[in-house]
Design a protein around this nucleic acid. Structure first.
Length: 343
RNA sequence: CUGCGAUUAUAAUUCCCC
């Protein structure tokens, strides 16, 4: 049972909830952990919410992990009301459940409610603490974020990164830098974020130096450095980095695509896009970037339609506004209006 | 009797928000 469950989990990590289900179905003996593992696979992947719920309802028994997985799925789907309902109906004093709940509140801007739950925790653990830092950060409560940070000594690297994020996204360059310097250790989270911060403040040289001094040049750092160059108008250097990096992921492609989209010659972006679809499956961002490159109505339309017909991606308001932009630039005002009506 | 042992909540790089 244990080894099958472990195997099930390794497939879950690959994002293969179908395969996980097959393994689960083939198991002759299952225990609560096997059920939880499958629920975890369902809850973390793009399964419809109803299928997660139905699995949850089917379970012969449930422990707090099962409940928390269900809460997490509701949170991920943005179903705050049902989450609230399920959370309140439980009446268990569970730090994980509380953290899911208050973080979901914070993500929807309900910082008071979030703080209320956080303050009610029996004792503070570092994950809940970090989640509250993130809650403040997301809602731009800088003072509170810093105050909370200082009030608890058991910081870990996540706490530091959350604090850095809070200052970085509020545009406090000097303080971001001093937080970065104060951090006890650096990892790819902090490095990539700091590279971005430097790039946003026109310190491309410093960004490069930081990249050079990092010990593990993960793909994330390469991506950050490519974007840094694009943002500072160094598209040729960005392209060189892109071509020379050891491996590329979807974000690498999207990053260089974003850079090429802002140049005067959209053909480079189109060429890259067609090159990319040999190895990658483009996502919403890829299409947002390629649509931003389009000046011609015909080209824009062909990408816009290909998005759904070839890649099964629903267009969002980013894509609509890019399309409308192209149509308006070409003075196709009535077409733009028609498109808006179909949104 | 004790310890260990598979499953749950928090941070980053591309688009959007700012």
């Amino acid at each position: 049972v244990i080894s099958s469950t472990a195997m099930l989990n390794s497939h879950c990590r690959d994002g293969d909830s179908k395969r996980a289900k097959e393994i689960f179905d083939a198991m002759e003996v299952r225990n609560l952990v096997s059920w939880n593992s499958l629920l975890s696979a369902f809850a973390h992947r793009d399964r419809e919410l109803w299928s997660v719920k139905s699995l949850f309802d089917q379970m012969p028994e449930r422990d707090s992990l099962s409940w928390n997985l269900m809460l997490g799925a509701l949170s991920r789907h943005g179903d705050l009301n049902e989450l609230k309902h399920l959370y309140c109906s439980r009446q268990e004093d569970d730090a994980v459940a509380s953290t899911i709940m208050f973080f979901a509140y914070a993500q929807t801007g309900h910082i008071i409610e979030a703080l209320e739950i956080f303050s009610g925790l029996r004792e503070i653990n570092v994950i809940s603490f970090n989640a509250m830092l993130g809650a403040y950060a997301q809602n731009y409560y800088l003072e509170e974020c810093k105050y909370l940070f200082d009030s608890f000594e058991k910081h870990d690297i996540v706490s530091w990164t959350s604090l850095l994020t809070a200052y970085a996204q509020s545009g406090h360059f000097d303080q971001s830098k001093s937080i970065f310097v104060s951090m006890p250790e650096w990892n790819m989270f902090s490095y990539s974020l700091m590279i971005k911060v430097l790039a946003q403040n026109r310190k491309l040289e410093e960004a490069r130096n930081l990249f050079d001094q990092s010990l593990e040049k993960s793909i994330v750092l390469w991506n950050a450095l490519i974007s840094a160059h694009c943002q500072n108008g160094q598209i040729l250097l960005a392209r060189k980095l892109f071509d020379s990096m050891p491996e590329r992921d979807l974000i690498s492609w999207n990053a260089i695509l974003a850079g090429l989209s802002q140049t005067s010659n959209p053909q480079h972006a189109f060429d890259l896009f067609h090159e990319m679809i040999f190895t990658e499956t483009p996502d919403e961002t890829s299409f947002a970037n390629i649509l931003a490159a389009c000046g011609s109505v015909t080209t824009a339309r062909s990408f816009f339609h290909s998005m759904l017909s070839d890649f099964n991606i629903e267009s969002t308001k980013i894509h609509f506004s890019a399309m409308i932009n192209v149509l308006c630039q070409a003075r196709y005002f009535s077409h733009a209006r028609e498109l808006m009506e179909t949104m």
